[in-house]
Design a protein around this nucleic acid. Structure first.
Lengths: 192, 192
DNA sequence: AAAAACAGTTGAACAAGTTCAACTCTAGTA
DNA sequence: TACTAGAGTTGAACTTGTTCAACTGTTTTT
């Protein structure tokens, strides 16, 4: 059952079999039904999650109540509010399952224990964090340097297996536009 | 001379005196004159930098040749293109000194050596990377959830000591707007 | 000291994206 | 089977932000 987690870890760092076994033992599986929340704003994020099955959406509500999606997470993606998790402060984010899903969770105490128990995990999460920075940096660049239409086509071609699980409303909230405007973008793309 | 670096490190992790001394010994000071580049797009980022004095701007040119600032770095900030540095691929970014500046640089080989020589640096850079993720996440949220006017006032009040070193053109390129529009924002803010 | 280059302001026309309202279609539920 | 809620489309009016051009003032360079 942890094969997927192990594969994911080994993309960043090679660990010994006993290390992998111990590492995996800290994670607890959890099933989340469609539309249920793994985290709601105002509560502290107590876990770091790895998605085994299904699909999640991490979003924030702005002042006007509009939903703004930071990212989606499907199988093989990590999931958390790192700001809330690190600083143990109430989260601004909501994490909701878009379909029946399964995750592996590790809580904060266990994660801190893990760093001491298996020193190699420091390197592991250092590398994974650096990859995350790269991803965030690219996301900001895309947002600044491209029009909505370009961002849409980029997203659809880069993440077809995520897009196939999403409604246009959810895609629009990720792109930072209204779903009405996305509809117009799609139309103008067809008309070529 | 390394006092500032040591203070910065200790915000993330307490290290022993010998560890700090060895760590610091890997960094080389470098003086950069105003308008000179520490990194230009197309070349591989060979260093990770820590600013001792002065001010830098990290920007990307979009298809239309418009400059888009990812972030500024003054005294006590870190500086690099992590995508290029990690993956040893040509950078899309430019890093330019906005005034005569001084940095401490560590190159890639030394950084990798450092992780082996001082295991605690794994934890150190793991923590620093996680802080960077938080910062990028906040930047994206600001961009998505606020108008240009709100972003401007936020930036000015959050980073007054950076803003004081910048022209309005540079501020606009960070906010993701034209400098003409920033000028209009400033006018409409005065007129209240 | 003059010339050139750059920073900032303003206005007018324009483009990108939003808002609101009406409508269609589909999927889930009583 | 009918009802309802949600997803998607479209149009018209609107707001936010861009583009271009002209002008002013300030640095830098010669």
């Amino acid at each position: 059952m942890n094969d997927l987690l192990i594969q994911n870890i080994e993309k960043s760092l090679q660990l010994s079999k006993p290390e992998l076994d111990e590492l995996c033992s800290y994670f607890e599986p959890k099933v989340i039904r469609k539309k249920e929340f793994l985290l709601t704003q105002g509560s502290v994020c107590k876990f770091e999650g790895f998605v085994l099955e299904g699909c999640f959406r991490v979003f924030i509500l702005d002042k006007k109540g509009k939903e703004n999606t930071l990212y989606f997470a499907i199988k093989d993606w990590w999931l958390m509010d790192i700001d809330s998790f690190m600083n143990q402060k109430p989260s601004n984010l909501n994490i909701q399952a878009l379909e029946d899903s399964k995750v592996l969770l590790i809580n904060r105490k266990d994660k801190l224990t893990l760093y001491d128990a298996i020193p190699a995990t420091e390197k592991l999460f250092r590398i994974m964090s650096q990859k995350a920075i790269v991803a965030w940096q690219r996301r900001l660049i895309n947002n600044h340097c491209q029009t909505a239409k370009e961002r849409y086509h980029d997203f659809v071609t880069t993440y077809p297996n995520i897009v196939s699980k999403l409604t246009d409303k959810q895609i629009a909230s990720y792109l930072g536009i209204t779903h009405e405007f996305l509809s117009k973008i799609k139309k103008s793309s067809k008309d070529l």
